[in-house]
Design a protein around this nucleic acid. Structure first.
Lengths: 200, 200
DNA sequence: GTCTATAAATCGATAGAC
DNA sequence: GTCTATCGATTTATAGAC
């Protein structure tokens, strides 16, 4: 009841939520949404099964929260890179480097990126994702704009910019999936992927 | 009991098995292994729920059979392409064209390819897949050999061939996933992907 | 061979003690 | 705030009639 214990409780509550979300992210990535059991997440988070439901209403809610976070953090990274004063081609290079690094080092940013992409590729998940990714000011269209600038400056190959971004996203999705799930020892040389932008 | 009905029964049995496998492939690709229900497969195949278990012992068995088929058919395609008398770079081009076409037209070959790749990226499925993909005479290594030849002839960019093949596989996995699940209207221009092989 | 009905198991969600 | 125990719904798998 004292002010001190209230603060402490708030702190605990915050910590637990982050702890659960972090554990859930790992489990969802490794097993997929449907195969991931709430008990898996509880075990990973080192808490009891029932406590999960003290912090989240359902498995869907946890997943939805994770996807929101993933899309937002991905958008921030892309915004930050695309707003810089680099050449367009170097913006893409910087983005690839950053994503490859976080995926390669198994940071939560890497997991988040995979989660966002997987949520995009599936209709069975409880969150509509495309609307958060595709649209003015959203991750996808920010990159399309960078590509268009690069094409105008002759740094990036001609052709439909959206097609190029999709191929770019797809390749990263595939690479990240293979890496995160242990089918690949390390992320490849980023310059291999950068070649898809190279003009004729 | 007559010879004729025995033959007919064998025929029916064969047809039903193929019918179930074909339906299961679609369902597994669209919903994932865990989310795919046996009832979904039965509905898709227009048969009763119980009949599934007359032809297969379990959901795992169906999945295992599908992965076996997928790896084998992928291997045949890659063997066929790699054994041809084209230039190495054109072998890769032919392979990309063939995969893009079957994925784009939603042929079962396209689904099979996605299934094989997804089975590779997950440890939760009931079949060990990497051993069937990676190894002498297996899909992965056949392509590594084509790449090495292309590098020797100066048609393909230098660098670790295995890294290049992995990136190639990953990009196709991502593109096929996006396409098969409806996040992409059409497969992109194959030449975009071919650029990852282009020498400096 | 094919179906319907049911058993058995799994898992998400809740209740209630501490 | 945290736990254990249980409910209820869903789904895999089986049994048995036709």
């Amino acid at each position: 009841m004292s002010p001190r214990s209230e603060e402490a409780n708030t702190q605990i509550k915050d910590d637990r939520q982050k702890q659960i979300l972090c554990s859930a992210l790992k489990v969802f990535i490794h097993k997929g949404f449907a195969a991931a059991k709430m008990s898996d997440i509880a075990t990973e988070a080192h808490i009891s099964y029932g406590l999960m439901y003290h912090y989240f209403q359902s498995k869907d809610e946890i997943y939805a929260e994770l996807v929101r976070n993933a899309v937002d953090s991905s958008r921030r990274v892309i915004e930050q890179v695309s707003a810089g004063d680099m050449e367009p081609i170097d913006k893409m290079r910087a983005l690839v480097a950053r994503i490859f690094k976080s995926v390669g080092e198994q940071q939560s940013a890497g997991y988040s990126f995979v989660l966002m992409m997987e949520a995009m590729t599936s209709g069975v998940y409880p969150v509509p994702v495309m609307g958060r990714v595709h649209g003015s000011g959203r991750p996808f269209d920010l990159l399309v704009h960078v590509i268009e600038q690069g094409q105008y400056m002759g740094q990036i190959a001609q052709g439909d910019p959206a097609e190029l971004v999709m191929t770019f996203f797809a390749a990263i999705l595939g690479l990240a999936s293979l890496k995160v799930r242990g089918s690949m020892a390390a992320m490849p040389d980023p310059e291999i992927l950068m070649r898809i932008f190279r003009p004729a």
